[in-house]
Amino acid sequence: MPPSGAAGDQITVGVLALQGDFEAHGLVLSRLGARVREVRVPADLDGLDGLVLPGGESTTITLGIERERLADPLRAFHASGKPIFGTCAGLIMLDREHLGIIDIRAERNAFGRQVRSFEAPLEIGVDGGPVKAVFIRAPWIAEHGPSVEILAEVEGHGVAAREGAVLVVSFHPELGDDDRVHELFLQSVRDARAAAA
C-alpha cells in the first residue's frame, strides 16, 4: 500500500514496457508509493505524471518505438514538462541520435562486452553517500550540450546527467535495494505536478 495520501494525491508513473527490465522499475516505484502503468502504445501515456525508460536492448526498444509510432508522443510528453527518467538503454533512447529528448550523445556498450560489466560505488549527489551502481554492457555519455549537468563520472566519462526535467543514468538503480535515485526522480515528478496545479 502507498505510505500516505488519498488516491487523488498519488502520482502515476509510466514505465515503457516494450522490452527490458520494466518490471524491476515498477517494483521500486510501487514500493515508493507511486501508481505504476506499463506503456506499450501511445494511449498508455495519457494522464501520466512521469515516465521511466528502462534498461534493455536499445536496438530492440528503438524498433518497438518505431512499430508502435511512439516517438512523437514521447517527445510531446517531454514538451509538456513532465519528468522522464532513463536508465542504461533508456539513456540511449533519450539521446540526440534517438528521441532527441536530452542533449547528449551516448556511446553504446562503451565499457565493453558482458565480461567487463561491473558494480562500483558511485557518488551522484544524493544524501547518504555513494550508491552501489550496477553497470551492464553500459553506455557512457560521449558528448553533451551546455545545458546538461553531468552528475557523476567513471574514468572521466559521464554516467549520470540531468537537463531540465530529464534524468539519465547509465547504470541500473532498479536492480538493487537502494531506492535513492528513484526517490530523486519521484521528487521531481511531485514537484512538476505541484507546479502545474
Binding site: 522490452q19 527490458g20 518490471e23 534498461g55 561491473f118 558494480e119 562500483a120 541500473h172
Partner: peptide
Amino acid sequence: MRDEATFKVKAGLAEMLKGGV
C-alpha cells in the same frame, strides 16, 4: 573499487533481456 562479473551483474544481463526474443 570495481567488482567485475558479480552474480548481480550476471543475473542482471538476463533482466535486460526480459520481454524479448
